[in-house]
Amino acid sequence: MKLSNFRWRTKMDALLSWSLPAILVILWQIFSSMGWISTETLPAPVTVIRTAIHLARSGELIHHIDDSAVRALLGLAIGGSIGLVLGFLNGISRFAEKILDSTVQMLRNIPHLALIPLAIMWFGIGEESKLFLVALGVFFPIYLNTFHGIRSVDPGLLEMGKIFRLTKRALFWHIILPNALPSILIGFRYALGIMWLTLIVAETISSDSGIGYMAMNAREFMQMDVVVLSILLYALLGKLADLVAKALEKRCLRWRVNG
């Protein structure tokens, strides 16, 4: 009884959180049909959906989404794992921190998008330049949060581990890593945002495929519906990434009673 009640409530919550976007789309459609919004400013939702179906049928849409997704995930994997490893290294070893951390902090102050011209000159407009930019962008939040998570370990717990004769490896797996996990996941969520942002900019400026390219290409032919579709796709993909991050947090941080 209680459980079904709970389920019903979560369903209601989900419905409520989607109701505002739904209402906005409906209003948008109504205003477009009434002619209050000119189709040159903004195409009607129905037109956008029709375009989406059309592009999906031709395979073009899937092709672009696929290219963008691969870039995003690969860049995240490369930059994220470097950030993770370096964060662990500098968090655990004071020596490594002394050598590496101030350099990382210096680099962090350069907006990574400022490197777009350099990336194009180094790698051309192929995959490498976009992977480089995404990897660089996601590196910092993951590095910083991993480092901070490792350093914020409760010394009382470490002392307890010492008294119970935990090995260094056990200290890491039982105390240091779980303690850092919430912070790492925050870094991950941040990184997902930066990942999309970097990709949009990189694909818009220089590319021959991907959602950003699709939008820029459509602009040249004044295909407003494709431009709007691209923007909506980014919004949906961003939301999807956020849902994945949330699910991961829920799974990894089950012990947080009031989480």
Binding site: I163, H174, P178, L253, W255
Partner: peptide, 19 residues
């Protein structure tokens, strides 16, 4: 070095919240 025969209990329980 560490006293192998001894165990301590502190004022704070010092439990691992994730276990």
């Amino acid at each position: 070095g560490l006293n192998d025969a001894a165990r301590i209990m502190f004022q704070e329980p010092r439990l691992l919240p994730w276990r």
